[in-house]
Computed example of a mutant assay.
Amino acid sequence: MRSARPSRRHKRFKLKSEINVVPYIDVMLVLLIIFMVTAPMINASVDVNLPQADAKALHTKEEPVIVEVDRNGNFFLRKSKHDRDPVTPEQLKVEIGAIVKENPDVSVLVAGDQSGKYNGVYQALTDLQQAGVSKVGLMSTPESGK
């Protein structure tokens, strides 16, 4: 006696000819996140040889505030042509923050020693950003022989 149920062997499923794109979308989102995270790190490995340039000097109405970084990474703050005060990174943040609160449009320039380590200039730029400076310029000397 055979059962009334159809046998599993005789049951056939119709094949679908559609592509399931959900796994592909998941892979693309993961790749997008990976590229978004790694893209800012790519620029960190660029070799740079500074600071000579054939650029025109900036002409401003006010005298800019200059942050100097010597070859040993020491900071000096120059508020006018004649004063050059040694400062610590904490003092730099406080003094530049006070200057920016007084005059938000003040020009701030960073002068780094060519034979010094880039870490000192980077630290100065970070401290200036934390002090609230929105625009910072890098100083260079004119190319010799031009």
Rank of each mutant, 00 (worst) to 15 (best):
S80A: 12
N74P: 00
R12G: 03
H59S: 09
V48E: 14
P89R: 00
F13R: 11
L138D: 04
L50M: 12
L128Q: 00
G137N: 15
V110C: 12
K135V: 04
D47F: 02
V100N: 09
Q130Y: 13
L15R: 06
V48L: 13
G112W: 09
S7H: 15
P6M: 13
P6G: 06
H10M: 06
Q123D: 12
V65F: 09
Q91N: 10
G112V: 12
Y122A: 15
M36Y: 07
S45L: 05
L138S: 01
N72P: 05
K101N: 09
V108E: 01
E68L: 15
S115A: 14
A4S: 09
I99F: 03
Q52C: 01
Y24K: 13
R5L: 01
L50A: 07
E95L: 07
A57Q: 08
E63P: 07
A124I: 01
H59F: 00
Q52F: 15
V121E: 15
V30W: 12
E18C: 12
K61W: 02
D113E: 14
M1G: 09
Q52R: 15
Q130M: 14
N119P: 11
V108M: 00
E62G: 10
P6V: 13
L125F: 14
D70E: 05
M1T: 04
A53P: 11
G120W: 08
K101D: 12
S140I: 05
K79H: 01
L92R: 03
K81V: 03
T38I: 02
V110F: 14
V30C: 13
M41L: 11
M1I: 03
Q114W: 09
R12L: 08
L77W: 05
G116D: 08
R9Q: 06
P51D: 10
A53S: 08
D113C: 12
V100Y: 08
A44Q: 10
H82G: 08
L128E: 00
V94H: 01
V108N: 00
